Simulated assay, not measured.
Amino acid sequence: MAELTYAVETQGAVMTGEAEFARRTEPFRKELLAHCYRMLASVHEAEDVVQETYLRAWRSYSAFEGRSSIRVWLYRIATNACLTALEQRGRRALPSGLGAPATDLAPGPAAADVAFVEPMADSLVLSESSDPASIVTTRESLRLALIAALQYLPAKQRAVLILREVLAFPAAEVARMLDTSVAAVKSTLQRARARLDETAFGEITEPTDPHAQALLAEYITGFENADTAALERALRADAAIEMVGTTTWFNGRVMCLRVLAEAVGSPGDWRMLPIVANGQPAVGAYVRSPAGDYEPYGVAVLTPTPTGLTRISVFSTPSLVTRFGLPATLPAD
């Protein structure tokens, strides 16, 4: 009887511990996912690292002494898990970071040996209950150009810059997270700032802004109605199109319009559903099949500015549409 009582009490203690652990750690899951995504530029890799972070945290929770906050402790585990993951692979990129723009319309071959930056749905890291200021700040730190630029930094510089500049952790906290000195953190941050491409912080209009919504509407109209005039109105003179998954990208409104004019086909060939990715307006794209319904094509992330769209990043991966919570197919009109 004593053994049975001990077993029941032990099981109850474990269940109580799990509940307490979940209560204290779950509120940070979405922001940890955003952090790991900034480090890794891959949604599925970030999700894996967050799962690993929570597993490691649970295993060592009984030894947590409260010398730092739960949030700092989780970030320490997550950041070091990201650094370990980065030791095993090269950086991710966008086509514009791999070479010069294309000078003709011939599609480039798929680059199977290149790891590309992946788009992230805002809904994965933002809650409807978040305050507006927090939403804006998070979106700014997830812009596609910034995520791509971060990948050019060495892993330790990337970690320090994100922890200090994006998340605003004190230098002393960052030093403890990375088992280094405050002086080393400050020096690393200076080098990271010097290397980071300034274009990563260019002016981008919020996706909820009426002007950004108008540009999104022009883009959707252009494709669904095969209306190249609408696309021309939306594009800035220095606009670029990136065909993610290949090394091909196009630069300048004239060249981009040639690409788009060839892509739009006939009215009704495309259906576009608006979404938000990386804090930017985007669409889930569907193309009409021979049967008349619409099959998924992928996701296009738009970069709106006060003077027009400056970049269209096309991710021609059909499975992306369902990752953004969209239907796997659309019925015929």
Rank of each mutant, 00 (worst) to 15 (best):
L32R: 10
T329R: 15
Q213C: 10
L4S: 11
S68Y: 08
M243V: 15
R288L: 11
L257K: 02
S316T: 12
F64D: 02
R24I: 03
T137S: 15
E26H: 12
M272Q: 13
T16W: 00
S266Y: 11
L153R: 01
P154A: 02
K156H: 08
M39D: 00
A63R: 13
L215P: 09
E206W: 13
A192R: 01
P210M: 14
M1R: 14
P170R: 08
F64Q: 00
Q280K: 07
V259R: 05
T305Y: 08
W58P: 07
A212D: 03
A133K: 10
R23E: 04
Y61Q: 11
Y54C: 07
F324K: 05
S181I: 04
V264C: 02
G12E: 10
R158M: 03
P210A: 11
E87G: 14
A133W: 05
R195Y: 05
G284T: 12
R253H: 09
M243G: 03
G17A: 15
E173C: 11
L216R: 14
L150K: 00
V174F: 10
V43N: 04
T248A: 15
G245A: 09
E87N: 12
L32E: 03
T138Y: 02
S130D: 15
A85L: 12
A200T: 08
E165L: 07
V283W: 07
T317I: 13
D333P: 12
T221K: 13
L55C: 09
P132C: 09
G308F: 01
P327A: 06
E295H: 06
A19F: 12
A285L: 10
Y61M: 10
S130R: 10
I275C: 09
Q11I: 08
A214C: 08
L215A: 12
A291W: 04
A212P: 07
G325I: 09
E206Q: 12
A332G: 15
V301A: 13
V125N: 05
E203R: 12
E203D: 14
A93I: 00
A145C: 05
G292R: 06
S187D: 13
L178V: 05
G265S: 04
L146Y: 02
R323P: 01
I135E: 03
M120R: 12
T138C: 08
P318Y: 01
L216V: 07
V49Y: 03
A217Y: 02
L302N: 04
P101S: 01
G245P: 04
